[in-house]
Design a binder for these strands. Sequence first.
DNA 1: GGCCAGGGCCCAC
DNA 2: GTGGGCCATGGC
Length: 274
Amino acid sequence: MLVHNKNFNIEQIADSGQCFRMNKIGNQRFSLIAYGRYLELLQISEDTVELSCTEEEYEQVWKDYFDLEYDYNSIIENLHKGSDNFLKEAAEYGKGIRILKQEPFEMIISYIISQNKNIPAIKNCIEAICRRYGEMKRSEDCGDIEYYIFPSPEILALASNEDLRALKTGYRDAYIIKAAQAVAYGEVELNHLKESSYEEAVKALKSIHGIGEKVANCISLYGLHHIEVFPIDVWIARVLNEIYNNDFHQELYEGYAGIIQQYMFYYMRYLKRA
DNA sequence: GGCCAGGGCCCAC
DNA sequence: GTGGGCCATGGC
């Protein structure tokens, strides 16, 4: 089915560093595994994307996943009216990005893995974990495709350190097991943290050994959709330092600073490549 | 082949 | 509460 939206660019989202199981499979064509499902997406024009699913599945799953009810355009227009030239350029460059509503547990494990790794290495490691521990499924919507869903907390809670290390997790093996156990045993209640304040969510997540401020922020933003949080990784730190001389005023964007952060991240990585 | 990567822990100060 | 060493590994 077709989706029309001015601010919906699949390539930008796939390359925005917030998701790790969205891959390019052809010209303007991408695959995605999430919520136990397989989806293919084709960017037909700047404001039109074709999804390989029924309208019913779209309404039930993907409309929410891609946050398609939220008005990103008004944020971008406001930036254009403002005086921050870097953010104007960043928002214009990444105007097709959306903050995804991904599965909280998958985000916990993914961002634990992310520490001190680059994005291709993160993706490879996550894929290896899914192939080792995730259930294999088949999709018939796009031909006969085999794919592996992200494993449950209960499964990963029983993993061994040695098996995880064999999948290139490095020293994070114990972190992964501890986090899976915390979720499986109900010590951290993810559905509750979606409804709670972001402060409570971050605090609860940081109680897990191996999750610090930055990873807790990323989980809150990309897994719990607390769009007011502003994760600071090495790239954002670079922006704050080099562009703003360490005097950036987050409070100007209260309530949606996470979206601002995403534009910054995506644009800075582009600038450093070019 | 050395430097960097969507960092966090632990331990001094 | 801040700073530095250390952690395991791949990408470039």
